[in-house]
Design a binder for these strands. Structure first.
Lengths: 202, 202
DNA sequence: CGTCCGTTTGACCGCATGGTCAAATGCATG
DNA sequence: CATGCATTTGACCATGCGGTCAAACGGACG
């Protein structure tokens, strides 16, 4: 018995399943993913999966729920006390690093949004919207004070998402265009930072 | 009989099927789409679909094949004889208009790339890559001549794709962030053009 | 009117897949 | 060791879906 209400084996198996689910869902999408494929990736039998999660959808939503929070962390870290241009470019850098290190999470998220966000629409118009508005006010203040070029902060933030996640979500296309012998992520770091430095320069 | 080898009814039904397929595939993805749903949307019986197309995959690939060409038209129209900044911003505008007027095509494409482009990988590293390289040389010449700020033209072109298509592919997220009372496309026009004017200004 | 051929359809098939269940297998504790 | 609960699994079920087929329908032409 265990005071947390969850044994070590439960914690471990749940974690294996979520990890396997991320792998399969991000590569094949919700409809393309099968319980057998997830079970195989988790090295568990199919009925055993369903001992820990009641359904395929439950695995999927468990992943999505965990995801949004970490996904927004870089934006949360935007510091109103910092130097404006540094803060913005650091944010761009953090977001790009996140996309590079967690492309499966990025693609899982992209797939969900692309299909109309059936499982987290409320999260989008709730916490997400609130955070963007809140951080948007900080950015606007920086713009008004002449530290950054003026634009709609919400569209600016979305443009940062679009550019950074593009390298993860459309990776095959990026690799195809650049051709072999190029490391997209190395070049992206340089290009994206320069890109936003120009956009933001007052 | 008909000298073109295709009767009016064939042309019309094939067109209905492709239109229905676009609707269903773009909303649900390849795996989420069903022949019954496509048949319903096309107002035809399921076996009748398969009289015109041999399989579900055939409808999907027929759509994709038609798509890439029109999708690249705005880039093809980039005129080496034009005024550099005007040419680039016109390209951005055309791409944004395309995304606004054909969001289903954009999402169909996005879904395909997101899943690793199994059905048009060769198109990406072939015609797409060639076109980007070719137009990239034009852009580079403009940069070298001091008409545009210097950057890697291929990444620049991809950033234009990322930003414009973002408004179509992630439309639910954009709407959620902006909230009601905002027309994303109206604001996008203004913001995206300004965005790239700054990026491109020498 | 009858024939022929393009078109349409209801009925059906096989298979993959999400999910169930009862029985078996650990495994910790008294 | 014995008991009881957590865990695991093989076998199975129901359903949805891609695809087939033989038969029916329809219209152009002799």
């Amino acid at each position: 018995m265990d005071s947390s209400g969850e044994t070590r084996i439960q914690r471990e198996n749940r974690s294996r399943i979520l990890s396997a689910g991320l792998e399969v869902f991000s590569a094949a999408g919700f409809n393309g993913a099968t319980l057998d494929a997830i079970a195989r990736a988790a090295e568990l039998s199919k009925p055993n999966l369903l001992y820990y999660f009641p359904s395929k959808k439950a695995i999927y939503t468990a992943l999505l729920d965990r995801l949004l929070d970490t996904w927004l962390d870089p934006l949360r870290a935007l510091d109103p006390e910092g130097e404006p241009m540094d803060e913005m470019l650091s944010y761009v850098g953090r977001k790009l690093t996140l996309a590079r290190d967690y492309p499966r999470e990025s693609r899982l998220f992209a797939g969900e949004i692309l299909r109309g966000a059936p499982h987290l629409k409320s999260e989008l118009s709730g916490p997400l919207r609130v955070l963007v508005l809140e951080k948007g006010r900080i950015v606007r203040a920086w713009m008004d004070a002449g530290h950054l070029a003026k634009s709609d902060p919400r569209h600016l933030i979305m443009s940062i998402w679009a550019l950074t996640q593009h390298y993860a979500d459309f990776e095959v296309q990026v690799r195809a265009v650049l051709g072999p012998g190029h490391d997209p992520w190395v070049e992206a770091e340089q290009e994206v930072i320069t890109h936003f430095r120009r956009v933001l320069a007052p």
